[in-house]
């Protein structure tokens, strides 16, 4: 496995690791790790370092919705142009092109049901290439990015064992 993959697999689980720590844990020089991270940032392999937050446990109100969107693809551009028009909106968390019963999956983060509804009826549905939308609200998040949000796994081992 190359150094790039080994760095990525480590950062994927914990973006707080410093280059110095990564260097120790991967058995490489700090300079090599730093250079590799910089290269991957420049090539947009590493696109950012967001934090995984469970907003439900905070005072900030947050609503997440998944919207199924059917669109008309455009000649020569396919779905890319309409996807780009959608993902520019700041409230849009993620956009995926899907196989199956609809075309684009749009993940939306809003402050209330009303804000999501306004986005769908005011911005998304009126777009020319959008044929239909179906909005699903997220009721509870259990797991994200491979990590359970609901429970913390305690260390249940005895303190000392042979």
């Amino acid at each position: 496995m190359g150094l790039d993959t080994r760095i990525l697999e480590s950062l994927d689980k914990n973006a707080k690791l410093t280059a110095a720590e990564l260097a120790v844990m991967l058995g490489e020089s700090e300079a090599a790790v730093t250079a590799e991270i910089r290269r991957m940032e420049e090539e947009l392999i590493i696109c950012g370092y967001p934090t995984l937050i469970d907003w439900d446990k905070t005072e900030k109100h947050c609503v997440t919705a998944m919207i199924e969107v059917k669109v008309t693809p455009q000649r020569g551009k396919g779905f890319d142009e309409i996807a780009e028009r959608i993902y520019q909106f700041e409230e849009v968390e993620a956009v995926y092109l899907m196989s199956g019963g609809f075309d684009l999956c749009v993940m939306l983060k809003g402050t209330s049901l009303k804000s999501v509804a306004e986005f769908v009826s005011g911005k998304l549905a009126p777009m020319e290439s959008v044929l239909s939308t179906a909005t699903h609200f997220v009721l509870k998040k259990y797991k994200e990015h491979g990590l359970p949000l609901v429970t913390r796994t305690e260390d249940e081992r005895m303190l000392i064992t042979p």
Partner: peptide
């Protein structure tokens, strides 16, 4: 060790 409730351990012989 058992007497110490808030000790942190590096003493186990099993996977985490």
């Amino acid at each position: 060790v058992h007497e110490m409730k808030d000790a942190i351990s590096l003493g186990v012989g099993e996977p985490d």
